[in-house]
Design a protein around this nucleic acid. Structure first.
Lengths: 147, 147
DNA sequence: TTAAAAAAAGATAAAAAGGTCTTTTATTAT
DNA sequence: ATAATAAAAGACCTTTTTATCTTTTTTTAA
């Protein structure tokens, strides 16, 4: 469904939301170890996320990544949009360039409501709300926290 | 969502279901032209489909592709499974290798019901039933039949 | 029985995704 | 000031996906 990079990105943003703050920034090393994803690849992804202002960073000792106020109010769909492009959900399931309710492909009405609802779910909750929910319900974003 | 090859494959099987028969087989050329997909790539895909017994073929003059009785009772999920692997729908949305109701990822319960439902839709209708529905409702599988 | 038609098979090529390595820049604590 | 730290930037490599080209095999109709 999503590219590997996109999955890594979502998980790392959530990890930062849950564990970092402006006072306690977190480095790529920690994130890559906890999430068990390749360090250099993740570093690139987090650069992208920073450039797109979905997360914040500072260099040097005590440097690392965290979410500023703006970052906290972004949502998961922003990450998906950055990494994979929104077309992953908006485009025709069978790849037709013209596919809409007036000229639907055979699976249009099967897939359309699904796409709508899932996009809504990923758009209507901010990263921080998401993080709060994860903390509350004890969801996991890494295999390491499965006891 | 699906790979390009998978989309081509689904559309070409449906095209054959709608237009070919054992008496009137259809060649790669016609399919590639109507669906506007690259001929040699499609030829490879249709070879794969044939090998997996999702469609049937004969060589030589008057040769081409068609669906025998068995082929007609296959479903779209069989095609997806062959081309992309069923994991595209069954695997964790965030890529975790352990993700189930007991140890759910943050989006597990958001995504799981959709995956179930959409897989059901693609499994519970045979290719021929699908084709009949397409004919009945006038759905399109190529841009060329948009009037 | 031979020529033409059409799929099968296999080798090759281009582009994208996934991943690595090295150098540069910015920050902080000593 | 300087050394250490950590992100940013950029060049590079590998694998997979997408696509093409060529040769072989099968089949049919003249």
């Amino acid at each position: 469904m999503l590219s590997t990079g996109c999955k890594y990105a979502i998980r790392s943003v959530l990890y930062i939301a849950l564990n970092a703050s402006e006072e306690k920034k977190i480095g790529v090393k920690e994130v890559s170890e906890v999430l068990e994803v390749p360090f250099p690849f993740l570093a690139k992804l987090m650069q992208q996320l920073t450039k797109a202002k979905l997360i914040s960073s500072t260099k040097g000792p005590k440097g690392g990544f965290y979410l500023n106020e703006q970052d906290q109010s972004r949502n998961v769909l922003d990450i998906i949009n950055l990494m994979d492009g929104i077309d992953k959900f908006q485009g025709c399931f069978l790849g037709l360039s013209k596919c809409d309710p007036a000229n639907p492909c055979p699976v249009h009405f099967t897939v359309a409501p699904f796409k709508e609802e899932i996009m809504g779910k990923f758009r209507d909750k901010s990263i921080m709300e998401f993080a709060a929910e994860i903390r509350l319900t004890g969801r996991h974003i890494t295999l390491k926290d499965i006891v």
